[in-house]
Design a protein around this nucleic acid. Structure first.
Lengths: 128, 128, 128, 128
DNA sequence: GTGGTCTAGACCACC
DNA sequence: GTGGTCTAGACCACA
């Protein structure tokens, strides 16, 4: 993870977990890194990681076993998808659609931009 | 304008001007409200309005006649469109497309959401 | 406020606000002390207060006006009552009832303890 | 025993013994499971069980015969009741009564909640 | 070893 | 002036 200056680090951490859970990199019951260890690995203060974990626990994505660590919750994937989807439809999309209207961008235009984006992505993959 | 959104107020103000200029509510040479007056009208700190005006002046959207006021610049519309478009393709869209991928939302799904958004909007208009 | 060693300080702060809102010491729209000021007044670190405020904002008890401060939310009282009531019936009460059963304390006994508690309270008030 | 509750595990274990002794599931002189065995049975760290046993020994509920094991003490039941009762009247009850006052819950309301709690309990038993 | 709370203090964006 | 994020580091309870 290399941090995007824009978003707070702790939210980038939560995002990493949400995405990883959705794409099944983490599965129910998996233990995740301890607060300290993840902090060291990310070169970040434990408080920052703690903040991310607290958020995820609040949203029922992870849970804590006392003195042992944090684990992926039962319905983590469903909850993660739910959070992401709400964010998407309530925050991201309306903004995009409004901008489209103002700029006079049609849905057909959007499709072109979509294809361009996909090819760009795949190229960056090739270069690795 | 909703000042409790996540977006800084001064950016919401600049956005209002960008949009208004693009949709020709303001035209070249028009005088806009003084910092003071707009601040009062919006119930906002004059510093905040000042910041928006400075931003717009920086981007050649408005210009200042000392002691007289702020006016819409020559190429305001072109510049506004340019700013908006860059923001759209560089910041908003990639984020949206990435989220789509993670959530497994197809472009066809997006179209449905687009239509839903349009009908919702028009309904709110009718109700006014 | 003088802090109970048992409960975390930040939760005692949230509790103070919940109780104050329920008993109408704070009303909708009231501004509450700034993070810094409350921290100073309580002799506590601003982070601790911040934590309490973040919690209350999450629960829709208070909201933030950018750069201005925190204010009591629209439905603060309802939400506060809801939180307290759930805590009461889900956490506190079952424990009490279970203990009663184990110790063989009847509901009539409980009433006596209730009256005793009330008279004790009123006495402490008289002594002030 | 639910080890994810807010209560420390070692206290949940002591509670189990206190309750069992009060309800005469354990009697004077009975040997209880070794630290090791109980730890295995509960899927818990031996240190945690040890802590519970130390606590109980401190309170004269159990005693240790070196090299042999832990046994129920002479006045275990009286002591257990004493501990529970003090905890009940000094800690649990005042909290409950205070919350009642804040929420405007009368003693009559409490009775309703009491009845509801009893019927709920008996139903869960039936379903087993 | 684990997390949870807290302090002291910094820096930043925003109003 | 306001809050928001972050660091560094401490201390504690718990397993």
């Amino acid at each position: 993870m290399n941090f995007n200056s824009k978003k707070p680090i702790y939210l980038q951490i939560t995002d990493y977990f949400l995405n990883s859970i959705i794409s099944k990199k983490y599965n129910i019951g998996d233990r995740i890194l301890s607060v300290r260890d993840l902090a060291i690995q990310l070169g970040v203060n434990p408080n920052t990681v703690m903040r991310a974990y607290t958020y995820l626990q609040d949203k029922n994505i992870i849970f804590n076993k006392r003195g042992i660590g944090y684990f992926i919750s039962e319905n983590a994937r469903e909850n993660a998808i739910d959070i992401k989807y709400k964010e998407f439809t309530n925050d991201e999309l309306p903004e995009v659609f409004d901008t489209m209207k103002i700029l006079g961008i049609s849905f057909a235009d959007l499709k072109k931009l979509y294809k361009k984006h996909k090819t760009k992505k795949s190229k960056t993959h090739e270069n690795k």
